[in-house]
Write a protein that binds this DNA or RNA. Structure first.
Length: 416
RNA sequence: GUGGGUAUAGCUCAGUGGCAGAGCGCCGGACUGUGGCUCCGGAAGUCGCGGGUUCGAACCCCGUUACCCACCCCA
């Protein structure tokens, strides 16, 4: 047997309904907020992510699926959507084409990590981006959109964390302050943290090693080192969140893993879905568009993990059951032909009607109808055929009546 | 890349050296053409794979692969 490759999975009937619910809800909410869907290729030039996601990130350094194409070009399977959306924004001058460049997309992403609960090599994201708006009110709108999505999905027990990581002006001084505050204590931290202290001090805040927490808790906070502009911006973002009535926690440890984030960062964390508890994360990336060769335009957005949202959906979520309106059981060859004609007519009238394909016994056909949860069964045998009627059985009550064959379609439609 | 756990029927799992099992599901039957409940019968297995020990291995030993969970990191 050839099995699906590691970290990929088939989403089967019984589960796919929850995916459809998540995707349909997301599209509805995004459209309501005025975002337009776009779809971009799954493969891109490797360079796009090296420059966009960041040469120093783990995603690019060790998790990206990349290969050399037959003409020698380096191709990558996208590990995230933002660089692709920025590329499309620039390539098609969407700022000219759209009244407001507010876009969303959804689809598979690829990262070569060891799979675990809520993390796969092919995973799926919902992704929202806004380009060219500096005003903090758009930070507020994007976070409100994220929060509304979570609420519309019925997901509870989540926490919204918000922070500001500053900009290229103020971040270096904060990083320096971090290292200075650590001082000799660096020696007492875990190996990962010691490496981070040199490579990217902000990431020390990601550490989960219990022994390190006392030292980390005492470290300075990003928001105390913001430059005037960043501080004013962040204060305004927080005011908007208050205006929108969105409950959030200020998390000075929310620094996020991608190089391009500036100023506002945020994350929605859910319990009960495993160790990978971030269902949604995003922030502002004011330098990215220019860095990718576009005009000097700011940007902000977020990505939500579909697998994680599906895990976080309430157990009580009741999705409408898919069932045929009527099942047609036929006995004997002449009746089978009449049944197929009736089947065609029902379907042309927009009715979900099913039949048994193999010529089985009536008993088997009834069993099939029951299993499909069809509320009505049309029984067509020699007797019915001779009278130009069908017997209609209501499965719930086991009651049975006769209906003229010519009125069968109408009968189903009126009893739906 | 690292650590731990698991691997037996379609699914969930029992089975600690002596004939491969259960529940659910599936197929058929219980007075000619009637579902669910009950009863009877049936199909279905390379016990993950490869070696080793043994008269004999699903079971013990070695190796290997896959999956799950966790670390790193991230959605």
């Amino acid at each position: 047997m050839i099995a699906a490759i590691r970290g990929t999975q088939d989403i089967l009937p019984g589960t796919i309904e929850r995916w459809q619910f998540v995707e349909a809800t997301a599209c509805r909410v995004f459209e309501q907020y005025g975002y337009a869907e776009i779809r971009t290729p799954i493969i891109e030039r490797e360079e796009l992510f090296a420059k966009g996601t960041g040469e120093t990130t783990d995603i690019v350094q060790k998790e990206m699926y990349a290969f050399t194409d037959k003409d020698g070009e380096r191709i990558a399977l996208r590990p995230e959507a933002t660089p692709s959306l920025v590329r499309a924004f620039v390539e098609h001058s969407l700022e000219q084409a759209m009244a407001v460049p507010k876009i969303y997309t959804l689809g598979p992403m690829f990262r070569r990590e060891r799979p675990q609960k809520g993390r796969y090599r092919q995973f799926h994201q919902l992704d929202v981006e806004v380009f060219g708006v500096k005003d903090p009110s758009v930070d507020g709108e994007v976070i409100d959109l994220a929060w509304t999505l979570i609420r519309e999905l019925g997901i509870t027990g989540v926490e919204l964390a918000v922070n500001s990581v500053g900009c290229p002006v103020c971040r270096p001084s904060f990083a320096a302050a971090l290292v200075a505050a650590l001082g000799e204590d660096v020696q007492t931290l875990c190996g990962d943290c010691q490496r981070r202290a040199v490579a990217n001090p902000l990431r020390i805040f990601d550490c989960k090693v219990p022994a390190d927490q006392r030292v980390i808790d005492a470290l300075p906070h990003t928001i105390d080192y913001l430059c005037d502009e960043c501080r004013t911006h962040f204060e305004a973002v927080r005011r908007y969140l208050d205006v929108f009535g969105i409950p959030y926690t200020l998390s000075h440890r929310l620094v996020r893993g991608l190089d391009y984030y500036t100023r506002t960062t945020f994350e929605v964390l859910a319990g009960q879905i495993g160790a990978q508890n971030a269902v949604l994360g995003g922030g502002r990336y004011d330098g990215l568009v220019k860095q990718l060769g576009g005009p000097d335009r700011v940007g902000i957005g977020f990505a939500a993990g579909v697998e994680r949202l599906v895990l976080a959906l309430p157990d009580t979520l009741a999705l409408p059951e898919k069932r045929p309106a009527v099942f047609i059981a036929a006995i004997g060859e002449p009746a089978r032909e009449a049944a197929l004609t009736l089947l065609r007519d029902l379907r042309r009238a927009g009715v979900n009607a099913q039949v048994e394909y193999e010529g089985r016994s009536l008993k088997s056909q009834m069993k099939r109808a029951d299993r499909l949860k069809a509320p009505l069964v049309f029984i067509l045998g020699e007797d019915e055929l001779a009278r130009g009627e069908v017997s209609v059985r209501r499965m719930a009550t086991s009651s049975q009546e006769s209906v003229p064959l010519s009125g069968a379609v109408e009968f189903v439609k009126t009893s739906q």
